[in-house]
Amino acid sequence: MIVSIVVFVIYCAIVFGIGWLGLRATRDEKDFWIAGGRLGWLVGGATLAATHISAGTYIGTIGVIYGAGWSFGWLLLSIPLGYWFMAAVLAPRFTRVRKLTLPAFMEDRYYSSRVRALAAVIILVAYIVFIQAQIVAGGLIANVTFGIPAIWGMIGFTVILLAYTSIGGMIAVVWTDYFQLAVMGIGVLAALPIAIRQVGGFDELMTLVQAANPRVFTWESLPPSLLITMGLAFMLGSVASPEKLTRLYVMKDMRTIRRGVLLNIVAILVINLIVFMLALVAIVMFPALPTGDLAMPMITHAVLPAFLGAIMLAAIAAAMMSTVSSLLIVAGSALSFDIGHTLLGPAASQERRMWLGRAGTAVVGCIPVLLLLGGVGQGELVQFIVLLFTGLMAASFFVPVVLGVYWRRGTKEGAIASMLGGMIATFSWKLYGSPALDPVLPGFLVSLALMIGVSLVTRPPPRHALEPFFPG
């Protein structure tokens, strides 16, 4: 307990220190929202990976493998394919015009401030739900580790996150991501050999897992249609989530982006594969957990020695915090930069713009915890909230963004219909559709059909909107 507290305090002190340095290094709005847009591949790739890997991995994925078996792990392959598409197909055209936020890109390409406002509202709503899921996971960790009520853990994490994110802006976010990715890597790399030794070695682990649950290494627990469409959700969502797309503006050029994406893919593959192995250890050692989401906290608590358990705890917190900080800064930009900028007028100083950004980020950060205090939004397994969020982002943004830079005929009406239709279809399928199919597929198809159909029957885009994106 004491060791956990000491490690956690040191971890937080480093994060705060980086936040403070971020504050000092932030000189204008460009620094605050995209860290100046001049990062190299090491920090750029690390921030992409740290943003991708969330409590969804350290609490959720392990929980699903614990319950449903190894076949879920095959979804992992869809993630590098998504990022490859991002680096090879999308990024070269998307970064021709460098903006500060995704809604600002949408406004330029679709020549309409309404498109920008709609994109910003979708981001705000979806991010609040997603941040909530992550904060709930944080509360769970605090409860298991420190024995404090989960709600206090949630409030505590929110305060820490807001402290460095809203003060230090994107510079603090990317550098804390870098540090946090290192903590996540150290956590799982150190935990794996010890956890395997606890069950008597690798061969013993394999025998015991199959004895405990003969279906672990089969394709029987999840329907193939669900596996494939969940993979599609991860693939499209990795490309189209605004917090990932913003990372393309953060890195300085295409060469950097290709290398950054490579680092990102390596980190995601390695960390996930180790987490999957830890799920097997949990199946053997704790065969009767009430929910799979408890598998990682139990390993941290009961399998690892105190010091390593504390590092692992910091790793789980880092996974959660590095994702939430990125979501906060992007949701804050949607509120302050994309919606609130009209409050300031064009003549406002950089200083005032940054303070509006800080205020917006703080407001967005308080909403999830206030909703939780009101009893809204607790319940589902973390991984499934992550999947719904990823599906929503994929169904709302993939088509307007990718076709936006590849199809001249895409119009603002098409983009609005595509975003709204994709989102509504995803939600409706989640509520009323067959659970054997991930909602992303209907959402994506509706989004694509509306984009093409509505664009073709409306007036083509004006030349001035297309020129920056289709030069020559």
Partner: peptide, 30 residues
Amino acid sequence: MNPGFVFWGLFLAAAATLLAYVLWMWWVER
């Protein structure tokens, strides 16, 4: 299906994907 394939296949497939990406990167920048 053979449990070994379900388990080890994922590691192999992940390594192959990574290798393919690196080769693509080399091809683009050569």
